[in-house]
Amino acid sequence: MANPINRYLLNSPMLPQSKRDADSGLNLLIQNEPPGKDKVSNWLPAPKGQFMMAMRLY
């Protein structure tokens, strides 16, 4: 799969560059299509169709 931003994970060191909502919430976008220039910092490219995602939450 082509990964236009060469990103394969989202982790805590990336949080300072992530864009927050007006209420300080954080939306992580895991999708195939780019979300728009203002939301790319929160985007993890995903393949088309089904895929498996693993999350580690501490």
Results as ranks from 00 to 15, higher is better:
residue 1 M to S: 13
residue 2 A to Y: 12
residue 2 A to M: 10
residue 4 P to L: 02
residue 4 P to T: 14
residue 5 I to P: 05
residue 5 I to T: 09
residue 5 I to L: 06
residue 6 N to Y: 07
residue 6 N to Q: 14
residue 6 N to V: 13
residue 7 R to E: 03
residue 7 R to F: 02
residue 7 R to H: 02
residue 7 R to A: 06
residue 7 R to M: 02
residue 8 Y to H: 15
residue 8 Y to K: 13
residue 9 L to A: 14
residue 9 L to F: 15
residue 9 L to G: 11
residue 10 L to G: 05
residue 10 L to T: 03
residue 10 L to Q: 07
residue 10 L to I: 15
residue 10 L to F: 05
residue 10 L to R: 03
residue 12 S to A: 11
residue 12 S to T: 02
residue 13 P to L: 11
residue 14 M to P: 09
residue 14 M to A: 13
residue 15 L to V: 14
residue 15 L to E: 10
residue 16 P to Y: 10
residue 16 P to N: 09
residue 16 P to T: 12
residue 16 P to S: 08
residue 17 Q to T: 13
residue 17 Q to G: 06
residue 17 Q to E: 12
residue 18 S to V: 10
residue 18 S to R: 09
residue 18 S to F: 14
residue 19 K to P: 02
residue 19 K to C: 04
residue 20 R to L: 14
residue 20 R to A: 09
residue 20 R to T: 09
residue 21 D to P: 07
residue 22 A to G: 11
residue 22 A to D: 10
residue 23 D to A: 04
residue 23 D to W: 01
residue 23 D to F: 07
residue 23 D to N: 13
residue 24 S to T: 11
residue 24 S to C: 05
residue 25 G to D: 11
residue 26 L to Y: 05
residue 26 L to H: 10
residue 26 L to P: 13
residue 29 L to W: 11
residue 29 L to I: 15
residue 29 L to G: 02
residue 30 I to G: 00
residue 32 N to F: 08
residue 32 N to M: 00
residue 33 E to K: 12
residue 34 P to A: 08
residue 35 P to W: 03
residue 35 P to E: 03
residue 36 G to F: 04
residue 36 G to K: 11
residue 36 G to T: 07
residue 36 G to A: 00
residue 37 K to I: 12
residue 37 K to V: 07
residue 38 D to M: 08
residue 38 D to S: 15
residue 38 D to R: 14
residue 38 D to A: 15
residue 39 K to C: 00
residue 40 V to R: 08
residue 40 V to C: 01
residue 40 V to N: 00
residue 41 S to R: 09
residue 41 S to D: 12
residue 41 S to L: 05
residue 42 N to I: 07
residue 42 N to G: 00
residue 43 W to S: 03
residue 43 W to P: 06
residue 43 W to F: 02
residue 43 W to A: 01
residue 43 W to H: 04
residue 44 L to N: 08
residue 44 L to R: 10
residue 44 L to W: 09
residue 44 L to T: 11
residue 45 P to N: 01
residue 45 P to C: 00
residue 45 P to I: 01
residue 46 A to N: 04
residue 46 A to M: 10
residue 47 P to Y: 03
residue 47 P to I: 02
residue 47 P to E: 06
residue 48 K to D: 05
residue 48 K to I: 04
residue 48 K to N: 12
residue 49 G to M: 02
residue 50 Q to D: 05
residue 51 F to D: 00
residue 51 F to L: 01
residue 52 M to Y: 06
residue 52 M to A: 13
residue 53 M to E: 02
residue 53 M to F: 02
residue 53 M to K: 05
residue 53 M to H: 05
residue 54 A to I: 12
residue 54 A to W: 03
residue 54 A to G: 07
residue 54 A to K: 14
residue 57 L to W: 14
residue 57 L to T: 12
residue 58 Y to H: 12
residue 58 Y to C: 04
